[in-house]
Design a protein around this nucleic acid. Structure first.
Length: 677
DNA sequence: ATTAGGG
DNA sequence: CCCTAAT
């Protein structure tokens, strides 16, 4: 449809099939969605939990014994409760959780004592996650046919408190519960609320420590490893999460994951889907790692309180749009997930370096990090270490959005499984960590931290991390046929878009990060998109409300977060986040120029309608501003121009149009001018 | 809601 | 991009 329109006008307006909207986006429906999604889905936590659980049985027996200190237990418990309460209250406050159901699994269980599941971890201390929770409040949805699509947005998974030593496996201490409550009457919308309450915050600390590199498999690992063992001499079991799964998990997951990966066209076109937004999860890491502060069990309570705070904050932050979306199909259900770039703040470590640190090369660090699913924002705190090691901790990270599509007849259990599988698949699929420095992605993996400008006393605050899907994940086949399924498309699009904002400073995590590196390889130019309507476009255009909803989910990014690490006191940035920067691509500029040539300046509304109607992230103000800058750019020497170079030809047209319209003050009747220019 | 400009 | 004032 869009295409048609464009044609009608005689030129192709720039269209972005799917554009992530910033928090403040003026986009219409999106907004409502965002608003409605209040509760967070602790996805990550869930994942971790799952993993843990899987292995739990095996581990559990041991666990208890391991934790000599009883502290963990009590402390943890409290924390958990608090966390859940906090979450709950938050939901209430927002009011959107009405529909959400709190699965009190956590709370309830906690009460009972630490839930059995959880206990293990505590005891073990190794586990990174003590508990995870997922909360989803969701809203939405409609049914299409038999399938229910759940989109859980703004869910966060937070792993709060990590007590324990970092070594060891990540145990399944995590408890994850996912419940969906749906009232789906035949026509009724299905509402599902999942709650995962996270009990324990997880703390993650990453440093360049040598050990870190040990396992590659799962992110969690990093922490454990990273933690200086000095502090936790105890049981250091290096288990990879991934490895761990081998036995049980592998069996279970393999099948699902493989299936999930394969994208298959949505079969039931007529079905209604319910979309549930899954928000990202946050992993909370101890805000400050004092060298192993967290290793102490007592530290737990303290951390907890902080965590709670963080949690709340993070929820607010969550508004961001997901960077990416993907869909997975599992059996009859489809899972799509978005990765949100947003990351959580990372705590600073004021500590001095850990003794244990040996110089970890940046590389090590990176490697370590990779594997963590979901975006992570890291912020450095101060590094006092005298040595050349940079130490930082990642407070939390969240997983963007998760789309789940399942038959209405699906059981809650199956839904849970589906979600977990999706998450698991993602995790296993491999994620890599992107490093952002001052909002810009650092692509050169070979550069050292020092070369990159990351040193213990420098801009640690500007350091951020993002979790990016592995390339494999990124390139799932697109299924044009099935309109509803967009994720793949999204992916595609994103990939496509990358090229658009090449090198500039502007490269934000958003755009740049999302796509896997691989993606970069196949750069498509934005213009290409225009020429050849991408599936995404089709989807977007076409569309049923449902599909629309799905597709457009944008992604926001981490960058913003990255840029504004959550400092509890400072910055309300979280609330007033700036829109993510989206440099105009050449094709956009062209569309703008063309529109202005025809309409003249002063009619930005019309310009917007004409050339950017489908680019919801471009407001008329943006267009006006862009024009302003274009005029300026065209007036200065090419050497002074920055950013993606705009073809001189376009700049010439800009000047011509500018002067033309300046003279013809009559901005109102601009019909004749095309030729003039 | 738009437009125009300054920041 | 944001913010504001003026429409």
């Amino acid at each position: 449809m869009v295409l048609k329109k464009s044609l009608d006008y005689g030129f192709n307006g720039y269209r972005v099939p799917i554009i992530p909207r910033g928090p403040r986006s003026r986009g219409s429906h999106k907004k409502s969605v965002e608003d409605s999604q209040i509760c967070a889905f602790e996805l990550l936590a869930a994942v971790a939990g799952k993993l843990l659980q899987e292995s739990e049985s095996s581990t559990s027996s041991n666990a208890e014994g391991k934790d000599p200190s009883g502290i963990h237990g009590g402390g943890v418990k409290h924390e958990q409760l608090e966390a859940s309460n906090a979450l709950r209250s938050e939901c209430n406050d927002q009011g959107s959780c009405i529909e959400s159901v709190f699965v009190s699994g956590l709370a309830a269980k906690n009460h009972n004592s630490k839930s059995t599941l959880r206990e293990l971890p505590h005891a073990v201390c190794d586990s990174v996650l003590e508990s995870t929770s997922i909360i989803s409040s969701s809203n939405f949805s409609k049914k299409v046919g038999h399938d229910v699509k759940l989109e859980i947005s703004e869910n966060k998974i937070a792993v709060e408190k990590f007590h324990g030593k970092c070594d060891g496996y990540v145990h399944n201490g995590t408890e994850r519960q996912l419940e969906v409550e749906g009232n789906h009457n035949h026509n009724a919308d299905l509402t599902a609320a999942n709650t995962f309450s996270s009990k324990d915050p997880m703390e993650i600390c990453v440093n360049t420590h040598p050990f870190i590199n040990s396992d590659s498999s799962v992110q969690l690992t990093s922490y454990r490893d990273s933690v200086p063992n000095a502090s936790f001499p105890q049981h250091r079991i290096n288990v990879k999460v991934g490895s761990k799964d081998d036995d049980e998990n592998s069996v279970r997951y393999n099948r699902p994951s493989s299936k999930m990966r394969a994208f298959r066209p949505h079969q039931r076109i007529g079905h209604r889907r319910i979309r549930k937004l899954l928000t990202s999860k946050y992993w909370k890491v101890a805000p400050k790692l004092k060298d192993c502060e967290f290793s102490n069990s007592n530290g737990g309570m303290k951390h907890v309180s902080r965590n709670r705070k963080a949690l709340h904050t993070s929820e607010r932050i969550q508004r961001e749009d997901p960077l990416k979306k993907r869909k997975l199909f599992y059996h009859s259900s489809t899972l799509a997930y978005d990765w949100e770039a947003s990351s959580e703040s990372i705590s600073n470590s004021h500590e001095k370096t850990m003794k244990g640190d040996k110089g970890g090369s940046p590389k090590n660090f990176l490697h370590r990090a990779s594997g963590v699913p979901s975006s992570v924002l890291g912020r450095q705190a101060s590094f006092h270490s005298r040595d050349s090691h940079v130490k930082f901790s990642i407070k939390s990270f969240k997983v963007p959005e998760l789309y789940v599509e399942v038959p209405e007849t699906a059981t809650i259990g199956s839904l849970k499984r589906t979600v977990m599988e999706a998450v698991t698949a993602i995790l296993q699929g491999g994620l890599h960590v992107g490093v952002l420095l001052q909002g810009k992605k650092v692509k050169d993996d070979n550069r050292t931290l020092l070369q990159t400008g990351i040193s213990h006393n420098d801009n640690l605050d500007a350091l951020g991390f993002t979790l990016e899907p592995s390339s494999v994940m990124a390139s799932p086949p697109v299924c044009p046929k099935d309109p509803p399924i967009l994720l793949p498309c999204d992916t595609h699009q994103q990939l496509t878009r990358l090229p658009a904002s090449p090198i500039l400073d502007s490269g934000f995590s958003n755009e740049s990060c999302d796509p896997p590196p691989v993606a970069n390889v196949d750069n498509h130019v934005e213009s290409k998109n225009e020429l050849v309507p991408s599936p995404t476009d089709v989807v977007t255009d076409g569309t049923t409300p449902d599909s629309r909803a799905l597709v457009p989910v944008p992604a926001m990014s981490v960058e913003a977060l990255a840029v504004f690490p959550m400092n509890q006191k400072t910055r309300r940035s979280e609330l007033v986040q700036r829109r993510t920067r989206r440099p105009f691509s050449v094709s956009e500029v062209e569309a703008l120029v063309e529109a202005v040539e025809k309409l003249g300046t002063g009619r930005w509304r019309d310009v917007k309608l004409r050339a950017f109607e489908n680019a919801d992230h471009r407001t008329y103000v943006d267009l006006k501003d862009k024009w302003k800058t274009l005029v300026h750019t065209a007036s200065i020497a090419p050497q002074q121009r920055r950013g993606e170079p705009v073809p001189q030809e376009l700049l010439d047209r800009v000047l011509a149009a500018h002067s033309y319209w300046s003279q013809h003050q009559s901005k109102q009747h601009g019909k004749l001018q095309t030729e003039t220019l």
